[in-house]
């Protein structure tokens, strides 16, 4: 296989753009949330200040190897997810390292970060971290089910496991988007999307009030900064997958930004008006509402 070395700087450029976009978008979303509560909210560059501060903390404590690897796993989950799917369709520069079977790999990467986090947070030995992790894994597993079903349905529909080919099949007007050709799969996937964005009503994992912020309780300084970086990358990377699979992908950056923002807003809008589900409620919700739609979409394909 001949590997084009130019892909590496291009991939890094994608990463750079996405990190900055992610940080600004997270701040913007926090601001929107604040406006709903009639506050002014954080300044738009707040995330940069937080990040630099966390990297600049002078002392840090480790609880063991896995504790150290947790955030690393998580970050590599986010970066891997981003780099193995094409960000822009048809662009030599920004199709990254995508290859024929990348859809399966992407599904795996979505889960990867959570698992790494589980091991790391468990090693910190903090009971709140353990509670947060159990809740997190339960909820993510339940939310992942409809997503996986939707992905299989889409793969069956287009007879391919390559994200690039799926995007290619959706070109030529929005009536070709999966959203319109396979609405049930999109519905199931979007319900699952709500569950994995860590926003209400599915934010019990972080639960700032009862189990002080859950898994990251013991994480601080650079560890926390790594996780913050991932927080900027991961949602975007995930949304890129959704965009590619269901909403026709993007061919230029402005289209990319707009679509990602709008898809993100779905979870935000649901989030600001709904109270929080408990874990068993959210699992039941996924099994009752999202999974049947996913199965139906496969059957109908």
């Amino acid at each position: 296989m001949d590997f084009d070395w130019m892909k590496i700087p291009y991939a890094l450029l994608t990463l750079f753009i996405v990190v900055n976009y992610g940080m600004l978008q997270n701040a913007l979303i926090a601001k929107i949330g604040a406006r709903v509560g009639r506050r002014r909210g954080i300044p738009i560059w707040q995330n940069y200040a937080d990040l630099i501060k966390n990297y600049s903390i002078r002392s840090s404590i480790t609880h063991g190897v896995m504790y150290y690897l947790g955030p690393v796993f998580r970050l590599s989950g986010g970066v891997g997810l981003l780099l193995f799917v094409p960000s822009l369709y048809g662009s030599e520069m920004f199709s990254n390292l995508s290859f024929a079977g990348d859809l399966i790999l992407a599904l795996y990467f979505i889960f990867f970060g959570t698992l790494g986090m589980a091991l790391g947070a468990a090693e910190s030995g903090h009971p709140y971290a353990a509670i947060g992790i159990t809740r997190g894994l339960q909820q993510v597993s339940a939310a992942e089910l409809p997503m996986a079903l939707a992905v299989f349905s889409v793969a069956l529909q287009y007879q391919t496991l390559s994200v690039t080919e799926i995007v290619a099949a959706q070109q030529g007007g929005f009536q070709n988007w999966t959203l319109f050709t396979n609405p049930l799969a999109v519905a199931a996937a979007m319900l699952s999307f709500l569950g994995s964005m860590m926003r209400p009503p599915f934010d019990v994992v972080l639960a700032p009030q009862e189990i002080p912020i859950g898994p990251p309780t013991e994480y601080h300084s650079s560890y926390l900064a790594l996780m913050q970086t991932n927080r900027a990358i991961f949602p975007i990377a995930k949304i890129v997958i959704y965009m590619n699979l269901f909403f026709g992908g993007a061919t230029i950056w402005p289209e990319f930004f707009l679509k990602v923002f709008l898809i993100y807003m779905v979870s935000v809008l649901v989030g600001v008006v709904h109270p929080r589900f408990r874990v068993e409620q959210s699992i039941r919700w996924f099994l009752v509402w999202a999974v049947p739609i996913g199965i139906l979409s496969i059957v109908l394909v």
Binding site: A34, R40, G41, I61, I213, P216, E218, Y219, H220
Partner: peptide
């Protein structure tokens, strides 16, 4: 934390764990 004073706009926020607060 309330809309009236809203300290968040000054970059101030509350953390539930000593590890992360400064």
């Amino acid at each position: 934390m309330t809309p009236r004073f809203d300290a968040y706009r000054y970059g101030v926020q509350w953390r539930p764990t000593p590890r992360q607060s400064n």
